[in-house]
Structure formats: structure tokens, C-alpha cells
Simulated assay, not measured.
Amino acid sequence: MPTDRCDDRRGEATFATLRVAARAAPWLRAGLTPETAGGAVGHLRALLGVRAAALAGPDAVLAWDGVPDCHRERMAGHAGAALSSGRARVLAEEAPGCERPGCPAAGAVAVPLEAGGRVAGVLLAYDAEAGAALLRTATEVARWVSGQLELADLDALRRRAAEAEMRALRAQISPHFVYNSLTTIASFVRTDPERARELLVDFADFARYVLRRARDLTTLADELRCVDRYLLLERARFGDRLRFTVQVAPEVLGVPVPFLCLQPLVENAIKHGLARSGGPGEVRVVIRDAGAEAHISVEDDGLGMEPEQARLLLDDGPRSGRGEGGIGLANVDLRLRQIYGDGYGLVVESELGGGTRVRLRVPKRAPATGTARWPSP
């Protein structure tokens, strides 16, 4: 029976420690700033079991938590000692500087925090006494904090990579489409000024959406508005040769989807279903509610292609389906897999003389990843 009680206490202590660490982790995963340090430092003090704790960056103390307030003015100096040496230090012998009789935090340790091969900050722990035991505890906590800061750096790198990819994505909008659209608009200026004005507004709306400061995710409704503007401009260019239909289940309009995931599919359909055939063609966009997912298909009734050529549409090489500088299907396929997993890539179905259909499916709930973000209002 005593053994069971001991095991229970040990289990409770482990659970309490993990719970406190879990509360601090989200703050630290956002990097080391005054706001995040303020959110994490109280939890770190609980992990350390000390009277006071502080987090400092390379240039300043960011946050402090604890009852004693007599070291506040000297904390920067305490952190500086660890920053300059890059080593953990016991500050008891240096007298943390408190002249308050009976100070409950007269001893202190300072441990550097490392991330990306550099000293990113310092963890300070204050207690009645500072010695080897407190130093070991603070070192282990600092090692864990450093790990969270490393993850924060990786998250930041992924965000920068995603933003760079998005800039490259925008740069791939077909210059031929831009040229053809403006040429078509110019052709209506004399013959039908009102139509020219409407098309110019459509072009401006399309460009504004494509070039906006976007997040990884937008809504299906926004993507469809972009496709609608794109189709109106292409319809003005091809006239009655281009027919298109869009069927959408209203309940999926708010589903989060990757930015610019539909327009490239429609552009590919027009290219293969109409531009290459030289005759009339139809593009169909169908979006269905499938329970926990939305199922999307974009198809044309054009010339179609051999299965091997269809596979090349998802190849990001020189023979890929990018075509005329447009956004390749490979780009959309890659982003879908990065956000949702390998089971959510594009599926291309085609046969000679039978048209081409591209299918994708997306979960209705936004993915809980470090890179996918909901659009700003």
C-alpha cells in the first residue's frame, strides 16, 4: 500500500510538471519577445520551483515573475554575465546585489538559452540559496526552453519559405493571360466602352486578389470569385467558343482551401480543352459536400491526352503542365500535400479524345499545422 501511494504521488508530480510545460510551450514556440516571455515566465518559475524567475534577451530583460522585487534593477547585469560568457553561472558568490535583510531570493543562477547556434537569451532563477542543485535544475529547464526556441526558429523559416513560395506563385501568373486580357479589353474600348469598363473592373478584381497579402488559406467562396473573374475575362477573349458551368453546394462556401488552388486548374482546362483544339469547348467546375470534406473537380471536353502525359502535369520539371508561364498543377499538388498530407494531392484523369478531369478534396476544418494560417479579415 505505501508503494502504491508513492507511485501515485510520483505520477501526480509527473503530470503536474508536464502540464506546466505544456502551458509554457506555445508561448516559447512563438519566439522570445516581451509578450511571449511574459506569458511563459510564470510557468517556468513553477517548473523551477523558485521564488522568482526572469527571461532576458540579448539586449534587455523581457519578463520577470515572483514575489521579491529587489533584484529588478540588477537583472540585466546578472543576465549579461551569462550572455558574455555563454556559460551557466551561479551568482551567489557575486551577491546578486540585494541588500534587503532576509531576502527570500538572495541566491541566483543564470543559464544561457541557445537557438540556431547562437545565444538567444538567458534564464534567471532566484531562490533563498543558489548552488549545484539549482544550477542543474535551471540548466535542464533552459535546455528545454532552448529546444522550444529552436522549434520557433524552424517555424519562422517555414513561414518565410511559404511566403517566398507565395511570391513566386504570384510571379507565375501567365503573362500571356495578362497581355491577352488587356488586348481584349482594348478591343472593346471603341466598339463597346461599357463592356470594356466592366472587363477592366473584372481584371482589377482578379489582380487584386492574386496580388494581395495572402495567408496560406482562404475560403472556397473567395477562390470561386477569383475563378469567376478569370472566366469572364477568358470568355471575352474566346467568345461563344468557351462555355463554362459552375455547380457548388452552398454549405461548402466557407471551407478553408489553399490560396490560388482553383484558378490554375481552370486555366489548365481552358488550355487543354479549348486553346489547343481550336474549336468550341466547355469547362465544368463541380464542388460537392462530402461529409467531412469538400470534393472539387474541374474538367474539360477537349482533346485529352495519354496517361503518361497526364502524369507529367504533376511533374514540376521542364515538361510539366505549367505552360506559358502559368502556375503549374504540380505547384497546387505540392501545396495540398504539404498542408493536408500525401493523401490529398491532385488526381488527373484523361484519355485521348475524352477530355481531362482534375480532382481534389479538402477537409472542411482548417489544418492544425505550423504553416497553414487562416486569412485575415
Results as ranks from 00 to 15, higher is better:
residue 354 G to D: 13
residue 278 G to S: 10
residue 267 E to F: 08
residue 338 Q to L: 15
residue 340 Y to E: 02
residue 307 P to I: 08
residue 285 V to P: 00
residue 350 S to M: 09
residue 310 A to R: 03
residue 303 L to S: 13
residue 311 R to N: 11
residue 326 G to E: 06
residue 359 R to W: 09
residue 290 A to Y: 03
residue 351 E to L: 14
residue 277 S to A: 12
residue 293 E to I: 11
residue 284 R to Q: 14
residue 323 G to D: 08
residue 298 V to M: 04
residue 289 D to Q: 08
residue 276 R to Q: 14
residue 282 E to I: 04
residue 306 E to F: 15
residue 302 G to S: 08
residue 313 L to N: 02
residue 328 G to W: 00
residue 278 G to P: 03
residue 292 A to V: 13
residue 319 R to E: 15
residue 336 L to T: 00
residue 339 I to Y: 11
residue 304 G to K: 07
residue 347 V to A: 11
residue 319 R to G: 11
residue 276 R to D: 09
residue 291 G to H: 10
residue 295 H to V: 13
residue 336 L to Q: 00
residue 273 G to F: 03
residue 337 R to P: 05
residue 353 G to D: 11
residue 325 G to K: 07
residue 339 I to G: 00
residue 323 G to M: 10
residue 287 I to Q: 02
residue 325 G to N: 08
residue 347 V to S: 09
residue 280 P to E: 07
residue 297 S to N: 06
residue 285 V to C: 04
residue 321 G to W: 04
residue 305 M to G: 03
residue 325 G to A: 10
residue 356 T to L: 05
residue 334 L to C: 06
residue 264 P to I: 02
residue 344 Y to P: 01
residue 342 D to M: 06
residue 268 N to V: 02
residue 322 R to S: 13
residue 355 G to W: 04
residue 320 S to Q: 11
residue 282 E to R: 13
residue 325 G to F: 11
residue 300 D to L: 06
residue 333 D to H: 09
residue 330 A to D: 04
residue 282 E to V: 08
residue 340 Y to C: 02
residue 352 L to D: 10
residue 318 P to H: 12
residue 359 R to N: 06
residue 273 G to I: 03
residue 359 R to H: 12
residue 351 E to C: 13
residue 274 L to D: 02
residue 268 N to C: 12
residue 349 E to W: 06
residue 303 L to P: 01
residue 273 G to D: 02
